[in-house]
C-alpha cells in the first residue's frame, strides 16, 4: 500500500493525470472526514476538499516521503478549512466584539447524551454541529475533533488563548443544551 502510494505520488510529481485521479480517489474519504465537520452541505464539503486537494498537489514537492502521508494531507485540509473560514467570515470582528459566554446550567450525563446521539438521524447530527456559531464551531472542531491544543487553536485562528477556551465552553454548553432538549423530547415521545 505504502509502495503503491509512493508510486502514485512520484507520478503526481510528474503531473501524471491518471496518478492525480488515483490519489484523489485514495484520499477522498479521509479528507472528507475533516471537511464534513467544517461544512454543512456535501457540495460545500466537496468544494472545500477540492480546494485542499489542489493545495496538496501544488505542495507535493515539499512532502517528506519518510513521513506518513495522510496526517500531512489532513493538516493541509484543516488549514484550508481555516483559510476558507477566514475568507467567508469577518471572523476577527465577530470574535472581538462578542464578549458574552453562553452558559448552560442544566445537567446532562454522558450516558444519556451518548444514547441520544446514537439514536439521532445523520441529518440531525450534522445540524447539531453546524447550528453552532461559526467561531465556536471552529474552536470545537479544532480542539475536540482534530485534537489541537488551545494554544494551537488560538494561533491558527489568530485569537487569544482565553477566547479559545471561552468559545469551546460556549460550544459545549450549546451542544449539551440541545442534547438535553433532544433527550426530553425522546422521553416525552
Amino acid at each position: 500500500m505504502q509502495k503503491d502510494l509512493e508510486k502514485i505520488l512520484k507520478k503526481c510529481l510528474k503531473n501524471d493525470q491518471r496518478a492525480q485521479y488515483d490519489l484523489y480517489q485514495l484520499c477522498f474519504e479521509r479528507l472528507m472526514l475533516t471537511c464534513v465537520k467544517f461544512q454543512r452541505n456535501r457540495e460545500d464539503a466537496v468544494a472545500l476538499l477540492n480546494e485542499g486537494f489542489l493545495k496538496v498537489l501544488l505542495n507535493l514537492h515539499k512532502y517528506d516521503f519518510k513521513r506518513d502521508f495522510f496526517p500531512w494531507i489532513s493538516t493541509i485540509m484543516v488549514r484550508t478549512a481555516i483559510d476558507h473560514y477566514r475568507k467567508s467570515k469577518d471572523y476577527k470582528e465577530t470574535i472581538d466584539l462578542q464578549v458574552d459566554v453562553y452558559t448552560y446550567s442544566g445537567h446532562c450525563d454522558a450516558v444519556s447524551q451518548n444514547e441520544v446521539i446514537e439514536k439521532m438521524e445523520q441529518d440531525e447530527v450534522d445540524n447539531l454541529l453546524h447550528s453552532l456559531p461559526e467561531n465556536e464551531k471552529m474552536v470545537f472542531n479544532l480542539f475536540e475533533m482534530e485534537g489541537y491544543s488551545h494554544k494551537e487553536v488560538a494561533d491558527l485562528l489568530n485569537i487569544s488563548l482565553r477566547s479559545s477556551k471561552r468559545y469551546l465552553q460556549s460550544a459545549k454548553a450549546r451542544l449539551r443544551e440541545r442534547l438535553e432538549k433532544k433527550t426530553e423530547i425522546k422521553k416525552v415521545v
Binding site: 484523489y24 472526514l33 446514537e118 439521532m120 450534522d126
Partner: peptide
C-alpha cells in the same frame, strides 16, 4: 473527552465516497 467521541463517530459515519 469521551462525551464528544460519539458525536465525532456519528459525523464520520456518513457516506464519504467520491
Amino acid at each position: 473527552s469521551e462525551e464528544w467521541k460519539k458525536l465525532k463517530d456519528r459525523l464520520e459515519s456518513g457516506d464519504m465516497r467520491p
